[in-house]
Computed example of a mutant assay.
Amino acid sequence: MTFEGYAIVSRDGMLADATGVMPETLKFDGDQRFFDKALDTVDLIVHGRNSFEDQPNSYNRKRVIATRQVDRPIIDHANPKAVLWNPARAPIEDAGAVLGITAGRVAIIGGTDIFDMFLDRYVDFYLSQAPHLALPGGVPVFHGIPARHPDDILSQHGLVPTETRVLDAAHDVNVVHWVRKPLA
């Protein structure tokens, strides 16, 4: 399995407001299109129980939902394409295997604990940024924010920025593609 992260953050590195909800002000059409298109190309999506991708094709995608409510990976009775997974009890590979996914691209889409869990395993990370929006007291993309910037955390874990793409020129929203540095 290869792991890719996808997140949009405010200028202070937050992915949700102080109530834990991603506000409408952090949702931009260009980023939503980028995100939806990317998720259509991966084999599996991983997120926490409070994170989700509210896209038209969401229910059709295979996913793993992290929760402390199970001891072993099991199919979610509410969605046969989803597995409930306790990261403290089983590796992610076990959860993917329940859905028949033992290789391929895996998209990590949040929240904070889930993003942190894969910091040393990301091959790619797509960090979208909304530079004109601040969410004081919000939910950070990684632990250590706002004392540190998300770029610093990605760099510390061996990722380097390679390209920046504008997703919404009117709001200066862009996405930076980070990739794992090759081992010397």
Rank of each mutant, 00 (worst) to 15 (best):
T2I: 15
F3E: 06
F3T: 07
F3I: 14
V9C: 10
S10P: 00
M14A: 14
T19E: 13
V21C: 01
M22C: 13
R33K: 07
K37N: 12
K37S: 12
A38M: 11
L44S: 07
I45G: 07
V46E: 04
P56A: 09
P56E: 08
N57F: 03
N60Y: 14
N60D: 14
V64E: 07
A66C: 13
A66Q: 05
R68G: 15
Q69V: 00
V70L: 05
R72L: 06
P73A: 09
I75D: 06
H77A: 13
N79V: 04
P80N: 14
K81Q: 15
V83H: 00
W85H: 05
N86H: 03
N86T: 07
P91A: 10
P91L: 07
A95R: 02
V98N: 02
G104Q: 10
R105M: 03
A107P: 06
I109Q: 02
G110T: 04
F118W: 09
L119E: 09
D124V: 04
H143P: 02
P146E: 07
A147L: 09
R148S: 14
P150Y: 05
L159T: 02
P161V: 08
P161L: 10
E163K: 15
T164L: 05
T164V: 11
L167F: 05
D168N: 11
V176R: 11
R180P: 07
K181H: 06
A184D: 06
